[in-house]
Write a protein that binds this DNA or RNA. Structure first.
Lengths: 339, 339
DNA sequence: AGCGGTTTTTGAATCGACTCAAACCCCCAA
DNA sequence: TTGGGGGTTTGAGTCGATTCAAAAACCGCT
């Protein structure tokens, strides 16, 4: 019932607690005979080391927190998987927390993680400028921003979202589209704002030849995309855009679904480009063109930066890693049959 | 830098550590004046309570582990969300761990969680019979099986997968299908085996009128479903089944995609029913019929059972909660046009 | 001033594992 | 026999917060 402690192991093995601790941590300095005796006692008692006590003493935990905007978005699931993979190699646990883009929930999670004295926190913040993050760092919990660029005070891994938006935009323009709609979320989310800026840029470069209409959704969800799609599909054909760039794949999938429901053909009546290239994008019945981000790599690199900072805090210099996205063209934005 | 401890707070506020602890835990028994002084000191020092030390002393953690087979499967993301929601109400953290259906990774996570002395573990096990789970419980870490029925030695929440398989099967049979294929995963996963048993049952009830061919995939993934779909699509039309029941929605989506790629119409040439009713099922371009499980409720109930066991271990009796699934019919299995 | 009764505050003991200086053991050389 | 040197083992002190019996402070009243 009650798990046994190092003390009981010591008693049973007729050694001191110090020796048991040595067997656990530096078995090579203990004589083989004693070591065996201790192991036997451990097995007999079903002893499991109390990581909490250990952590209290040595002061550093083997856990990192990963706070994301939406666990249900496969993009973040993949980031998490990347993070976990590297953490695993370093005997470290990743605890995944969902802020659901709610500042209050984010705050609670940060509080909890700090109280637990985690080794560090990886976070895609609701608001990257929040003083809370600086506080954490100042009090000794290193923070790495994920999918969101920092400004020198901390480490970050991000993807060039402006470039991503630009890629999507110029692709559509190249394909001959002159009326394009952008479907995005609240611009308070930096990534989203940047993607928007990117496509606006691409449009501007054409010199006024292309018309861009923007839809702003309250949340980056399938349902939101569907709603936007319905609205767009309802427009008279001559005013209706011929292409849509969605700020993420969830929106794009919803948008696509609305087209199907309204009998519009993709890509002939409406081309669609999404963002993130989640697995479901390729699996959609009209496979979705999408701006691909190195999802697992984002997570992996974030853990890497964190470990670097924790292992050698002295000579650590904060770094901002930025990856380049690329465009994956699939059927949803294939060349239109000329009408 | 170094976070300050209760001792420094005491010093600054000119009280004893006991008083600081009281302010933190039972502020009402401390005189208002002292209380204010202590709060001020806490603010000044940026003191953050060390949950690790607290936990060591009081012996119980406010964290539960949730170990799932696949974080990238939205089904589990939803289960996690449900679990988190209820845990949140009880000031408890959920740490999400991904076993990726790999017994070794599962084992590592269990070890870590036990060492951390978590309050309890919710798990969708790779192998529900593993002695490791019994060990955990015996040593004092309560375990609740999720989406997998227990045999009386522990609590569990599950969904009647046989019924689910039966629902899908009889639905397809009712719709007039006489050649049906089942696309599932390794039968070592209990849920999968049960779903299979369910549809076989439904088929058996027709008295040999219906033919059922089963495909077994190594993993329950989109890619697997696609591969199976290609194989089925390649059959000559007369031998090809007219309907498919997939063991989960990921498979169903892959299968659906393969149909589209091969030019087979859904549901006219091939009806499809999936399992789990993840959000992407409804959002697929041919909205997917699917057996719905109460995903969030599963997570929520699991936490509930755990809390019950932890709060009143004496009078706790292990319970096995079983939910009924229901079938959501969408376009992918709509009535066929009579040929 | 002294007393009984409350309300507050104190501080040593505790949780379990780790650390490290000191003690111990054994063997060999002087 | 003694001394020294390696390899082992010991055990008290420590990490930070909680607990609780005991001490202290306070109050109203005689």
């Amino acid at each position: 019932m009650a798990t046994s402690s190092i003390k009981e192991v010591a008693q049973l093995a007729r050694v001191s607690v110090g020796t048991v601790s040595n067997v656990l941590n530096r078995p090579e300095i203990v004589s083989p005979a004693t070591r065996e005796r201790v192991f036997k006692a451990i097995r007999e008692l079903g002893f499991v080391r109390n990581e909490v006590a250990r952590h209290l003493r040595v002061g550093r935990s083997r856990t990192v927190g990963l706070v994301v905007l939406d666990v249900a978005n496969p993009f973040f699931a993949d980031v998490a998987q990347g993070a976990e993979a590297l953490a695993d190699e370093h005997d470290t646990m990743v605890v995944l927390c969902n802020s659901a883009a709610d500042p209050r929930r984010e705050r609670r999670h940060l509080d909890q993680l700090e109280q637990q004295r985690v080794m560090g926190i990886l976070i895609t913040p609701v608001d990257a400028g929040s003083p809370r993050l600086a506080e954490l760092a100042a009090r000794g919990t290193p923070v790495v921003l994920v999918d969101s660029a920092a400004t020198g005070l901390q480490c970050s891994v991000a993807v060039d979202d402006r470039l991503g938006g630009h890629l999507a935009g110029s692709h559509l323009i190249e394909r001959g589209h002159r009326r394009i709609t952008y479907v995005g979320g609240p611009p308070s989310i930096k990534q989203v704002a940047d993607r928007h800026a990117g496509i606006m840029n691409a449009v501007a470069e054409t010199g006024g030849d292309v018309e861009l209409v923007s839809h702003v959704l309250p949340a980056l969800s399938v349902a939101g995309g569907r709603a936007a799609g319905e609205r767009v599909a309802g427009l008279p054909a001559k005013r209706r855009p011929t292409a849509a760039f969605c700020a993420n794949d969830l929106i794009a999938l919803g948008f696509l679904q609305a087209m199907a429901a309204r009998g519009l053909r993709v890509p002939d009546d409406m081309a669609i480009v999404g963002y993130d290239d989640i697995d479901f994008a390729a699996a959609a019945a009209v496979p979705l063109s999408s701006v691909r981000q190195p999802r697992e790599l984002l997570g992996r690199t974030a853990v890497d930066l964190l470990l670097e900072e924790v292992t050698a805090p002295e000579q650590h210099r904060h770094r901002q890693v930025i990856f380049q996205p690329d465009l994956v063209v699939r059927e949803s934005s294939a060349l239109r049959r000329r009408e």
